[in-house]
């Protein structure tokens, strides 16, 4: 009997939860805020779905009902991707080690 491809995706999903579990526990507590902003940015990879929906229209009818939702989702996800990564970058730039001992 053949295995349903769904089972493979489920396997990936469950293994990823385990990876996430171990990776996130190793994140230092002082970086928990950047962790939240970067997880925010990467979860916006949902934009791939939005792009597929938007590109479904033909040249004559760019805006079908379905692709309009796609376009809206693109805007939302793009705000998140750029905003998320840039604000994370901005925060991480601020974390500095102690400079050489006081003069």
């Amino acid at each position: 009997m053949e295995i349903d491809p769904f089972i493979f995706r489920l396997s990936i999903f469950i293994l990823s939860i385990f990876i996430g579990y171990y990776v996130v526990w190793s994140v230092t507590p002082s970086l928990h805020t950047p962790l939240m902003s970067v997880t925010n940015a990467i979860s916006s990879v949902i934009i791939v779905g939005a792009i597929i929906a938007s590109l479904a229209g033909s040249s004559e009818s760019v805006f079908g009902t379905s692709s309009i939702f796609g376009f809206l989702a693109i805007v939302l996800a793009a705000i998140n991707i750029f905003g998320g990564f840039l604000v994370t970058q901005r925060m991480l730039q601020m974390y500095k080690k102690k400079k050489d001992k006081k003069k």
Partner: peptide, 13 residues
């Protein structure tokens, strides 16, 4: 796959 992996990561995080 990318979305499944990311979703799991963010969810557990």
């Amino acid at each position: 796959t990318a979305l499944i992996i990311t979703g799991a990561l963010v969810g557990s995080s």
